[in-house]
Design a protein around this nucleic acid. Sequence first.
RNA 1: GGGCGUUUAGCUCAGUUGGUUAGAGCACUGCCCUUACAAGGCAGGGGUCGGCGGUUCGAGUCCGUCAACGCCCACCA
Length: 843
Amino acid sequence: MTRNVPDKPTLDGLESKWDALWESEGTFRFDRTKTRDEIFAIDTPPPTVSGSLHMGSVFGYVQTDAHARYRRMSGKEVFYPMGWDDNGLPTERRVQNYYGVRCDPTLPFDQDFVPSETPPDPPISVSRRNFIALCHGLTAEDEVVFENLWRTMGLSVDWQQTYATIDEHSQRTSQRAFLRNLARGEAYSQDAPVLWDVDFKTAVAQAELEDRERPGAYYRIAFGGADGSDVLIETTRPELVCCCVALVAHPDDERYRGLFGSSVTSPLFGVELPVLAHNLADPGKGSGIAMVCTWGDTTDITWWRELDLPTRAVIQQNGRFQTEVPEWIASSQGKTAYQEISGLYPNQAQQKMADLLQTSGDLRTDPKPITHPVKFYEKGDRPLEIVSSRQWYIRNGGRDDSLRQTLLQRGEGLDWVPDFMGVRYKHWVEGLNGDWLISRQRFFGVAIPLWYPLDAEGLPDYSAPIAPDESDLPIDPTSATPDGYEEGQRGQPGGFLGDPDIMDTWATASLTPQIAGHWVDDPDLFDRVFPMDIRPQGPEIIRTWLFSTLLRSYFEHGQLPWGHATINGWILDPDRKKMSKSVGNVVTPLPLIEEYGAEAVRYWACNGRPGTDTAVDYGVMKIGRRLAVKILNASRFALGFGEDVGPEAIDQPIDRSMLAGLAGLVEHATAAFETFDYARALEVTESSFWSWTDDYLELVKARAYGTGPEANSAHASLQLALSVYLRLFAPILPFVTEEVWSWWRQGSVHRTNWPTAREFEGLLGDPDVLARAGEVLTAVRRAKSDAKTSMRTEVTSLTVVADPTTIHALRDAEADLLEAARATGIEYREGSFVVEATLAVDA
RNA sequence: GGGCGUUUAGCUCAGUUGGUUAGAGCACUGCCCUUACAAGGCAGGGGUCGGCGGUUCGAGUCCGUCAACGCCCACCA
C-alpha cells in the first residue's frame, strides 16, 4: 500500500483522533460468539464516580489496559467492561454538599422540586424520592466526566459493556443474590449492638472502620465496695458510668480476687453492680479493673455477651443520651445526676460528668491526658458509638471457623500478583470478628427486598420475612406490595411492613462479575466470561471488594470469581506523601494530560512496578513523551525509502544480527506480559528501541539511502523491526503506535498479532555483529567528543584491537561501520579491545 | 502490639535463579544545528547498594538482627 508519512509528525490530537476512530470502527467491541477459552475477561473496578479524579484513578486502570491490549493482540477476545460505582454514601454525601439538601424520608415527594443554584445553608430537607432523583442526576454527570477521562487515557474498554451499581440491572442482580443467600441461610437478621455513625445515622461494617488517634484522658473513678472501701477504676469515658453493668478484672489478679462475686455501687448513680472475672481484663491497663458499659467499645460487647450482662443502653441513634432517666437509676441523687447529661452528646456529657465526679469527690486524681486510637467510620467525622438495632448480616467466617478455613483456602487458590498481596487477604480473614453487616439506614442504594408480616398488635415478625419472586426484581419494599396483601395493609395490624433499609454498596459491588457478565438475564454470556481471568484493584480494598466478591462467588457458584488478582500499588504525591484531600496534595490527571499528553501519563503509570507504591513523577512523564516523539521520528526514517520490501531481501549480516536481538526482545517482553509485568515489558522494549535508533539506524543510514540489494536488505530490516517495535509498544503507547501503523498498514495495530519468533524464521544472524559494531561506533564518537569536534569529522585512520571473534564480527559490519564512523578503512590487530581513531582535525 | 512492603547515584527507580568493573532516566559537565528527531543527538563525571553479624571461593542478591519510612491489622477499660 502507499505510505502516508507526514513531514512533521506530531503527538498533538492523537488521543481524540484515535478514540473517535476506535469507537466508530468498534475496534474494542467484544465478540460474544467466542468461547470461554478464547476469551480473556476482566472484572474492571467500578470507580466511585462521586469521588475526585486523581492520579490513583489513572494508575491502576492504565496498567490493566496495557495488559488487556497485550491479551487482545495475543489472540484473546477481551471482555473489558466498565462499571460506575454510584450507589451508596459517597454519592449521598456529595449530593448533600452539592445541592445543600438532606434526605427526610418522612416528607412527601415534591414533583416541582428544583435544587437552588447555590447550596442553601442550613441545608433544606427533601423527600427520599427527591433525594434519590438528585443522586441519579448528579452521578450521571459524574459518569460522563469519568468516561471522558478513560477515553482520553485510551482505555480499550468496550463502551457498550457498561453498568452502574445503582442501575436496574445491578439492583436485580444484587437483590437476587441476597435472596439466594437468605434462602440458603447465608444471610440473616439480628437485633444486636452495632457500630453506629451518629451523623449518617447508620450502622457500619467492620471493613469500613478505621482507627484515628484522638486526645482523651484517663479518669480515675471510685466505685463503692461492699465493705465500704473504694474500688478505683480508670476510664476514658466517664460519661458512661450511668450505663455501667459490671466491673471486671482478670481471674488471676490477686488485687481483685477477693471482690469477685461481690457487688459495688456506682458513684453518683448509686447503681449496684457485680464484680466479675474475665480473662480479657488486662491487669496492666489502668488499675487492672475495668467498668463494663453497654456499650463503650467492642470489648464491652464481648464482656456483655460472654458474662450475660444486662443491656443498659443510653446513647440513641442520633448520638445523644436519651432524655428520660433510665429505669435502673433509682436514687433521687442518681436521677438528678442523670438529668445533667440527658440529651447531650457524649463529648458534652463527658465534661459534665467529670465536673460532677470532681464535685462529689469520686474523681480521685486529675484526668491524665493521653492520645488513644478511636474507631471511626472511614467516611465519618465523629467517633462511632455502639447502639443496639436490628440489622442484616451475611455470614463471612467471622463467627464460623469452618467457613473461615474454607475462605482462607480459596484465597490460597487465587494467583496473587504480586504474591505477597495474598497475605493481606489471609490476615483480614483471620482477623474477622463477626459476620458482614450489610444493611444501612440510608437512601441511595439497593433496597433490601423484604417485607415483614405485622401481628395483631402491629409489631413486625422479623423471623418470617416475606420475599418477592425473583422475576419481580428489582423491588422497593417501601412502595411495592407483597403477594397476598393489599397496599392498604401497609403498616396496619395484620398487614405488612417493607424493610426501609438499603444494602451497603459492597453488597452490590461484590457481584461485579455477575453484573458485568449478566448472570441474571444472559446466562449464555455469563458462561462465556465467568469465572473471569483477572481482578485488577487497589490494595486498600482487598478486605472489602476482593474478599466480599470471593465470598459471594463461593456461596453462589462454589468457585473463585477469577483466576488472578492483580493488585496495583499506592499512589503518592511527588514528595512521596500519601495524597489526601485534607492535606491538599491531590494531583489530578487532567492538567498532566494537557501538559505531557495521555501517552506520557500512561508511560508513567506503566513504569510503576506491579504492586509497588509509586510517586507522581513529572520527570518520568517527560521521558514518556520523548519516547513517543522518538517513535514518530524513527518511524518516519524507517519508512522513508520506497515501497515495502519483503523479508526475503534481508541478507546483510548486520541486519540479521539486529533481527536476532529483536527476536530475543520479543521473547523477553512476551514472558514479562505473561506474568502481568507490563513494567518489565516496557523497560526491555524501551531500552532495546533506544539502542536500535542510536546504533542500528546510524549504522545502516548510508546504505539505506542508496539502492540495490544491500539497500533493499536495510529497507526490509527497518520495516520488519519497526513493525515489531510498534506492536511491542502498542499496549503501553496505544495512540502513537496506532498513528504510525496507519501510515503504512491496514487496520488497527491493536487487532494485529503480537510478534512471535516465527516472524524471524530464517532471518537470524549473529547478535555479535551489531553489538561489536555499536561498540566501535561508540568509541569513535567518544574520540570525536574528546576532540570537541563534530560527529561528521572524518576519521583518517581507524585501528581496532580485539579478539579474533570480535574482528570476525566486525568484518561483517565493516561497510556500514566505515560510513557511520566516516572512515575509509579499518586496520585490525589482535589483543584486548582498543579503538584508535585519528581524526582529520588532528592532522 | 502483630504483619506486609520499602531502603541502590543529588532526585525517581531497575537489578530476573548469588558470578567479570552495580545500570537507566532526570539533574550536572563538555561537545555537536549530522538530510528521522535541537522541547534533539553524542559523550562524560557521580554510588563503601540503610547499619551490624553470618553462609559462601564469591553477596546489592541468601540467612539473622537492628533502624527509618509507608501501608494493613489489633480487645481503644
